[in-house]
Every structure is written in C-alpha cells, then in structure tokens.
C-alpha cells in the first residue's frame, strides 16, 4: 500500500465514519430516552434515499403510501385509546397530530416531485423521513414501552424486517443512486483529491454533533430529554410525560435518518434492504459509547468507519467480520471498566 491509497482509504473511512456518527447519535438518543435499540433507523434512512431517487426520476416516492399506512394504524390505535379512556373530546388534537401533521411532508414531496430544483427534492426527502419516526414509535413501541430491553430489541428487529419488506413491495428490488449535491473534488496534490461530497458529509456530521451537544445541554427540550434519560421516574415526578419525550426523540432521530439517507445515496448504491447493515455498524459505534455517551460514540464511529475502509482493502470478503469483530475486545474492555452496570438498571426497571 502506498501513501496515495492510504490517503484515499482514509478519506473514504472518514466519510463512512461521519455517517455512522449521525446514525450512532440517533441510536444513543432513542436508547437513552426509551431503552429501545432502534434497529429500523437504517431503513428510514434508506426510505429517504429511495424517495429522493424516485423524485429525481419524476415519480411519486413510495414513502407516501408507507406513511399513509402508518397514519391509519396510528389513528386506529388512538381511537382505541380514546374509547378506553372515554376521552373522545380529544379527537381534533389527535386528528391534527397523528393524521394531518404526518401528511404535510407527503404533500411537500408530491409537489417537489414535479419541481426541477435538486435542493427542494433533497429537503422534501429529508422531511419525508421525519413522520416515520414518531409514527413507528406510536404504533409499535409505545404500547409495549414498559417491556424489558430484550423484548423491545426483538420488536425493533421485527419492525426492521417489516419495513424492509414494505420497502421491497413499494420501492422495488432495484438499487439506485442519486445525483451528488456537490460535484467535483478538491485537489490537494497530484493523485490526492477529496470529493466535495465527502467533505460535505463530514461537515454535516460535525455540525450535527455540535448542534446535538448545544441542544442537549442548553435548551429546555434538551434538558427534558436528558432528564428522562438519566432518571425516568424522577422526570415523571417533575411533570415530564414519557410518551412526549419518546415522540420528540423519535422525531429527532428520524430527521437524522433522513439526513443520512440523502448524504449516502450519492456515494453508495442503496437497495430497499441496505438499512440493516448501516444500523448494525453504527450500533458497534454506539456500543463503544456504552449506548449513552455521545463523545465516545463519535470516537467509535471514527474507529468503525476507518477500520471498515482499510479492512475492505485488505480483504473485502471479511470487512464486515472485521468491523463486527471489533465488538468482542470492546465489550471485554467495557465490561471490565464498568462491571454489571447494565444488569442493575434492568433490575430497577
């Protein structure tokens, strides 16, 4: 390996790290607020990517029927809840929150499909992903919010299978790429060049990480999320509704997923089932952060992205094995550092 190749692999790895960082942030956020390892994260990102691809071809993105399906399910469940609680007076709010709001991005996407500006389509694709997070949470996760972490994980895994199945049904089996937001590359010296798209990905990830830090530390909503994450019972005592924070967490995570989708689709071919492997690799990064620390997750994302890039050069067939193999030493070290931490929390819950 000569320095040129090493440099190319490093930039590729950093671009990958940036994506894993964004996904990792979303995973940690959702896990710390709701104790769910949100496996369908990658699938939501994939839907944003495939929607953007469909819009570029001038077609209506298939995420619209998908959202429609979840809206119907959510409304149905809300009706059941209102019947159980005899709170039919809430129906205008329920209809607004679960019926109208999620359909707004769909309307935007339907309009954007016939616009020529790429930026409009990118924005529409990102926003299209946003309602999916809260809808999935309402339909599948809220009814079992008090189950064990393991049960929640299994439900999340099944959810991912369901979503990728729906993806195959509505988006079709063919993979696609979208056109790059930024064409061209920055030439450093002969043979050394970085694509603008790569730089953009890194910049967005870095910016998001900063925003995340500021929002969680300084704003009210950040403090609410933080409070729920560190002590759910205490948070409820001071008047924070867990269902509300869960919805907010899923909303933010789905927004992140949408951003990942439009960042990854110009550099990699996306299929309806590409989401799971993305989530799993970001999961390794999140594990390095102990599913709770954002800075450590960032470090983990860096490790995963760069080692994946170099591993694929040395042995392409084994690259996934190498990345997931990282988990073993990490888990050994982590459990050595913080013994039996997880089990105690389980016992409390």
């Amino acid at each position: 390996m000569d320095p040129t190749i090493a440099f190319i692999l490093l930039t590729d790895g950093l671009a990958g790290s940036a994506l894993y960082l964004i996904i990792g942030l979303g995973l940690v956020l959702i896990f710390s607020v709701t104790r769910v390892i949100f496996v369908p994260f990658g699938s939501i990102a994939v839907f944003a990517a495939l929607s953007l691809g469909a819009m570029e071809l001038g077609r209506l993105p298939a995420a619209i029927p998908l959202i429609g399906l979840f809206v119907l399910l959510a409304l149905f469940m809300e009706c059941l809840r209102m019947r159980r609680q005899h709170s039919w007076r809430q129906w205008p709010r329920v209809l607004g929150v679960w019926g109208v709001l999620p359909l707004l991005p769909c309307a935007l996407a339907a309009w954007a499909s016939y616009q020529s500006a790429e930026l409009v389509k990118v924005a529409a694709a990102v926003l299209l992903a946003v309602p999916l997070g809260p809808l999935i949470e309402r339909v599948a996760l809220r009814p079992i919010a008090h189950s064990s972490v393991l049960a929640l994980l299994i439900v999340a895994l099944v959810l991912d299978q369901v979503l990728s199945g729906l993806g195959l049904l509505w988006f079709g089996p063919e993979g696609l790429r979208t056109s790059a937001a930024l064409e061209g590359s920055l030439t450093l010296s002969s043979g050394l060049a970085i694509n603008y798209q790569t730089l953009l990905t890194m910049a967005v990830a870095f910016g998001l990480a900063l925003v995340f830090y500021v929002v969680l530390q300084r704003t009210r909503i950040g403090k609410v999320l933080h409070a729920t994450a560190s002590n759910p019972t205490g948070a409820r005592l001071v008047g924070i509704r867990p269902a509300f924070t869960a919805t907010i967490a899923h909303l933010i995570a789905a927004l992140l997923a949408g951003i990942v989708g439009v960042l990854i689709s110009p550099v990699a071919t996306i299929y309806y089932d590409s989401g799971l492997i993305l989530t799993l690799k970001a999961f390794v990064a999140a594990i390095i952060g102990g599913m709770s620390s954002y800075p450590l997750t960032a470090l983990g994302a860096l490790l995963v992205g760069v080692s994946e890039s170099f591993a694929s050069f040395w042995n392409s067939g084994l690259k996934d094995a190498i990345v997931f193999g990282l988990l073993i030493p990490i888990l050994v070290i982590r459990s050595g550092l913080a013994p039996h931490h997880e089990e105690e929390e389980e016992g409390d819950a």
Partner: peptide, 17 residues
Amino acid sequence: NERYARADNSVAAQVLK
C-alpha cells in the same frame, strides 16, 4: 482479480487494487 458481494454498496478498495 477482485471480488465483491452482490449486496455491497461500495467497491472503492477493489477498484484501487
């Protein structure tokens, strides 16, 4: 002679080699 899996979404390393 470089190979990749059908499901891979990047072949950067194989291309470099």
